[in-house]
Amino acid sequence: MRYLIAVILLLLPLCASADDWEERFVFNEGAEGPQLRVISSTDTLLFAPFIEGFVAENPLISVEYLVTGSADIDRRVRANPSAFDVIISSAMDLQLKLANDGFALRLEDVEVPPWTQWHHSLFAFTSEPATIVINRSAFEGRALPETRQDLIEAMRERPDMFRGKIGTYDVRESGLGYLFATQDSRVSETYWRLMEIMGGLRVKLYCCSGDMISDLVEGKIHVAYNVLGSYASAQAEGQDALEVILPSDFQTTMMRTVMVSSATQSVQAAQQFLRYLVSDRPNESTTQSPLPLLVAEDTVSEQETIGLNPALLTFLDSLKRKKFISAWENAVIQ
């Protein structure tokens, strides 16, 4: 017993120092210059090429890369804004609210198209649609669903096949899941019908894209709804079983955004990092990057993408959120 307590006491500081990060990496450790603390919702695997490219160009700067969920990012930054220099997240609404509330540093001379930035403080650098990822084995001999309506019909046809075998975000925990859900609900009533059917089939709820895709790869679920295509493609590499479907009825496209914390101590380095991501990155990285980077000249994506504007604050209103969550729970948790 005493031994056990001693072990717990020994381990506690370790836990505290690890600070419950999903992932934590330091790039270019031991560099003479400043160390940037980058908090992000993007898995290290997908983001590492950018940081490696950045530290190769700026060998004096080291980068500590911390990964956590998008909702957690919002909480941590609000609690302690000076702890982070650069904030990267896929939850555009939370990021915009952070910027609106003054947590982002205004950078006047970053050359980007107006629609990919907000208030010169929040900058988008990827364009990623929400997709339906399915395990082909579940649709053997049948047409793959192309729209949400197709998916609904497929699930109605074979409820037994899909019961307990569908996954989507738990919008109460995932910031990105909430963003996708609210945007879907704005566009079409189909979303609610889909949620009701999924709820009826005991949908499995996930906090993060990564877990959802792992379960999909492992065959624990057949269908993952509203998962980021970039994650699916990256993790499903060499897995022929997985099919990433861009729904053809309507697409919800998110932009990953980055901002420099207004409380940062290393303004110069943090700015350099942001510029590297949004405007100064080398051209070849656009084609090689695991993340679908934003192409400034792409006017089509401007129309399909969720707009970076104050309307994103709407669903973050506590009353509105409460109402949406309760409607969602009514549909999904039965």
């Binding site: 907000w118 208030h119 504007n309 104050p310 309307a311 709407t314 009353l319 509105k320």
Partner: peptide, 16 residues
Amino acid sequence: IDIPYAAFSMLTTPSD
């Protein structure tokens, strides 16, 4: 209070 999406959307300005 179900704030309409347009309520804040209409406050979009060129200077953000």
